[in-house]
């Protein structure tokens, strides 16, 4: 009889531990944790919807600026997306309507990022050394002479 009481006590204690553990676990562990591995699966969907895409690609620009896009895709800058020189679509369009003017950078520095001759660029890529270019002075806008959307070299 004595041994049965011992057994009961230990089993009861074990039951209490298991209950506390499982109740505590349901409060502490997120719902989707462990569904596909040791992480919270809900976060995958959260990451997929973390923010609306900011860049739309040149095709999305062409929805309104078809003529401009046609000129760009015919010229030497055909591989350069609109958003490279301007800004992400989301800064200009919200819910399919124009929300703010698109920034236009007419500076020398914008062109220089790609076309200034520096150590590192592939030799075949068109680059200029400013001092040897039309007696150019740093700060003079390239687009005074070159059409940025379809430049002639």
């Amino acid at each position: 009889m004595e041994s049965a009481r011992h057994v009961f006590r230990v089993l009861f204690l074990l039951l209490v531990v298991v209950v506390i553990f499982s109740v505590g676990r349901t409060f502490l562990v997120p719902k989707s944790y462990g569904a596909y591995g040791p992480y919270r699966f809900d976060n995958v969907a959260e990451q997929a919807a973390v923010r609306p895409p900011q860049h739309g690609g040149s095709a999305s620009c062409g929805a309104c600026h078809a003529e401009r896009l046609k000129a760009v895709t015919a010229g030497a800058h055909r591989k350069v997306g609109c958003e490279v020189c301007h800004a992400p679509l989301a800064r200009h369009v919200r819910d399919g309507a124009r929300s703010a003017p698109m920034p236009v950078d007419r500076s020398f520095t914008l062109c220089a990022r790609c076309h200034r001759r520096i150590e590192g660029r592939p030799a075949a890529f068109p680059q200029i050394v400013l001092a040897q270019h039309q007696g150019g002075v740093e700060g003079t806008a390239c687009i005074d002479c070159h059409e940025p959307h379809s430049p002639k070299l």
Binding site: V29, K31, S32, Y33, G34, A35, F41, D42, V44, A45, A48, A49
Partner: peptide, 11 residues
């Protein structure tokens, strides 16, 4: 080892 399976849906 018996987690509640979440909604199997990413986007």
């Amino acid at each position: 080892g018996a987690p509640a399976l979440g909604e199997d849906h990413v986007a």
